[in-house]
Simulated assay, not measured.
Amino acid sequence: MAQAGIEKLIDELKARAEALGFDAFGIARADARPDLPEKLHAALAEGWHAGMEWMAETEDRRGDPRRLWSEARSVILLGVNYGPEIDPMDLLAEKRVGNISAYARNRDYHDIIKGRLKELAGLLARRAGVEVKVFVDTAPLMEKPLAEAAGLGWQGKHSVLVSRNFGSWLFLGAILTDLDLPPDQPHAESCGSCTRCLDICPTNAFPAPFRLDARKCLAYYSVEHKGPIPREFRKPMGNRIYGCDDCLAVCPWNKFASVSREAKLRSRPEFERPALAELVQLDDAGFRALFAGSPVKRIGHARFLRNVLVGIGNADDQTLLPLVEIRLGDPSPLIRGAAIWALRRLDPQRAEARRLDSLAQEGDSTVRAEWDGVV
């Protein structure tokens, strides 16, 4: 395409992206970050991906968009603002409610963004007669450094993209194309001497600025981790029952971010201050119904109740004891184990009184270990 035609095409794409609800738009060359394979390899070698083995399994493709698609020449990066209406940090003091990460309080962002990306990519394909591929987080594409290369913002010291206009609250999506498009200027890192995101982390999950060790990250343990929450992280979890927003929420650039202009990206009221007492009573069907269309649904009933019971163990509210004791007999070992920890936190004497009888009937080694463990 002639230069004038490409400029007109980009203007049309930007206008359509805005109409579709995208708040940020930028273009990077597919080879804009030749440093990524080495950085990714170093992080994997350190074990910072914890149990997310899929990151290691896709290392070759993840470090370079052209490994995903050899014909890729340009990457269009899109962002959607999901700035929350209430500060997630305010909920940490409300121990009887569950704190759900801001990104999960509305519809699943994969569902929100993917349809829009497909429509925009279809427009590009029709106008230019080119090939396109759409990516939203689920494919091995490193959107954050590419978004930095495309000028949407910069990767902050907490490793999340930071935008001058939207702080740390941007969902990202990408369109790969075999068309050469003029790239935008990369955004310079603008964190300065600020270390608020590092200092606020309750588990010291940042071994250094711009590096995150998932083996210490509460967001990882509450969302990705499939087994019991390691004991050393249960008290720091507090009432965080899905994700952890601390490092995002304290970013000073958030003061420039506005609440999402779209109702579909605003928090569902039932997810803003859900009572732990109600959540712990959910059966599998009730869990699926409540979290239909939400990212929370993906972790499943057992892992969710594991998180809720850890929250209850940190709630210091003995009125919740009967609800905890019911879960001691749950069919899921993951739930039974978390219930034991919560019971021992709320009433050590009551827990000790039930210990021997429960051990006599318990065949799961991880649950037996909970009875013998240290709170």
Score class of each variant (00 low, 15 high):
7 E>G: 05
264 K>W: 13
265 L>H: 08
336 R>N: 10
305 L>D: 04
306 R>H: 04
204 N>D: 14
248 L>I: 10
277 A>C: 09
223 V>W: 07
64 D>Q: 06
370 E>K: 08
366 T>G: 10
255 K>P: 14
35 D>Y: 13
268 R>V: 07
349 Q>K: 15
95 K>C: 12
186 P>F: 03
225 H>F: 12
167 G>P: 01
234 R>V: 02
222 S>K: 03
85 E>N: 06
161 L>H: 07
128 A>T: 02
103 Y>I: 11
325 E>F: 09
358 S>Q: 05
105 R>P: 03
202 P>V: 06
317 D>W: 13
19 A>M: 10
111 D>A: 06
308 V>Q: 00
14 K>G: 12
258 S>W: 06
302 A>I: 05
356 L>Y: 04
82 Y>F: 15
231 R>F: 07
9 L>H: 03
16 R>Y: 14
147 A>S: 14
148 E>F: 01
203 T>G: 15
84 P>W: 02
363 G>F: 01
322 P>L: 05
222 S>W: 04
144 K>Y: 08
332 S>A: 15
140 P>Q: 05
202 P>E: 06
163 S>L: 09
16 R>M: 10
58 T>D: 11
284 D>Q: 14
200 I>K: 13
18 E>N: 15
151 G>V: 08
272 E>R: 11
360 A>C: 09
373 G>N: 07
127 R>N: 03
106 N>R: 14
317 D>C: 08
45 A>L: 12
60 D>F: 12
329 G>M: 12
149 A>T: 02
319 T>P: 09
301 H>S: 05
190 S>N: 15
219 A>S: 15
281 Q>V: 09
70 S>L: 14
322 P>Q: 11
121 A>K: 00
361 Q>M: 13
302 A>N: 14
130 V>R: 06
247 C>I: 02
89 M>A: 10
358 S>T: 11
369 A>S: 13
275 A>E: 13
276 L>W: 02
56 A>H: 08
270 E>I: 10
263 A>F: 10
31 D>F: 00
309 L>A: 05
340 I>F: 08
353 A>Q: 15
119 E>N: 05
193 S>Q: 12
332 S>F: 02
197 C>S: 02
353 A>D: 14
244 C>M: 11
184 D>S: 10
261 R>S: 05
299 I>S: 03
57 E>V: 08
114 K>L: 10
347 D>I: 10
128 A>R: 01
184 D>I: 03
91 L>C: 07
76 I>W: 00
305 L>Q: 05
218 L>T: 01
98 G>C: 07
52 M>D: 12
178 D>M: 01
70 S>R: 15
255 K>A: 13
103 Y>R: 03
64 D>K: 00
230 P>S: 10
67 R>V: 02
65 P>D: 05
120 L>T: 01
331 P>Q: 11
279 L>C: 11
187 H>M: 09
164 R>C: 02
314 N>Y: 14
327 R>P: 10
347 D>E: 06
262 E>C: 06
326 I>T: 15
122 G>Q: 04
124 L>S: 02
123 L>A: 08
259 V>F: 03
306 R>G: 00
